[in-house]
């Protein structure tokens, strides 16, 4: 029963991937490539590339992609639902607890430890995207010769615009994309 297998497989991915982003990749690979053999390693690499190129969490993108390939639209829907069901159950329970006990000193203590941690974690994720954008590798793989001047310019412009005028971040991301198209593409045209 392919539908049930898809649902169950992505249910496990959703349950065991804290952070849902790139940290979920080994778990997804294990389920899709190794356990079930639904995709070859090459096809799996394609999934990651496409997940990076399209909006949305990587696990959900992978679920939709694998589901579509194996069992069409119903497969995609079931795999995606499997992926978010654990989140729904756990997060709604936490949300209920939070709404009830948020004034309790124990809860306030735990949250006061988590708030600065979240800022640190977001900063870490930001730095790894920055590294990927500036020299196409991880933080440790810094190479002066690989530095991408155009990316640095786009980053600087976007950051200044955000700080000065506080526009909608979506407009800034789209603007950065168009600027990239113009700056990277122009030399090829001229």
């Amino acid at each position: 029963m392919i539908y049930l297998e898809l649902f169950w497989s992505f249910f496990q991915i959703g349950l065991f991937s804290i952070d849902g982003g790139y940290a979920a990749l080994p778990m997804i690979r294990q389920q899709i490539v190794e356990t079930h053999g639904w995709l070859s390693m090459t096809a799996f690499t394609d999934v990651i590339t496409i997940a990076e190129m399209t909006p949305g969490p990587i696990a959900i993108n992978a679920a939709t992609f694998v589901g579509t390939q194996l069992a069409g639209l119903p497969g995609a829907v079931l795999a995606t639902l499997g992926c978010v069901t654990p989140s729904c159950i756990i997060v709604i329970s936490l949300a209920w607890l939070y709404s009830r006990y948020r004034e309790l000193w124990v809860v306030r203590g735990v949250l006061s430890g988590l708030r600065p941690a979240v800022v640190g974690l977001i900063a870490a994720a930001g730095i790894s995207i920055l590294a990927l954008s500036f020299w196409g590798g991880t933080l440790w793989e810094f190479a002066f010769s690989e530095l991408d001047g155009i990316a640095i310019v786009i980053f600087a412009v976007a950051f200044l615009v955000l700080q000065k005028w506080k526009p909608n971040p979506i407009c800034v991301m789209l603007g950065a994309g168009l600027l990239g198209l113009a700056l990277y593409g122009l030399p090829g045209i001229i």
Partner: peptide, 16 residues
């Protein structure tokens, strides 16, 4: 190319 530019933009949004 669009996505390459957007990557730098995403980094700026997160930095901000």
């Amino acid at each position: 190319l669009l996505l390459k530019g957007m990557q730098a933009g995403v980094a700026a949004v997160i930095a901000n």
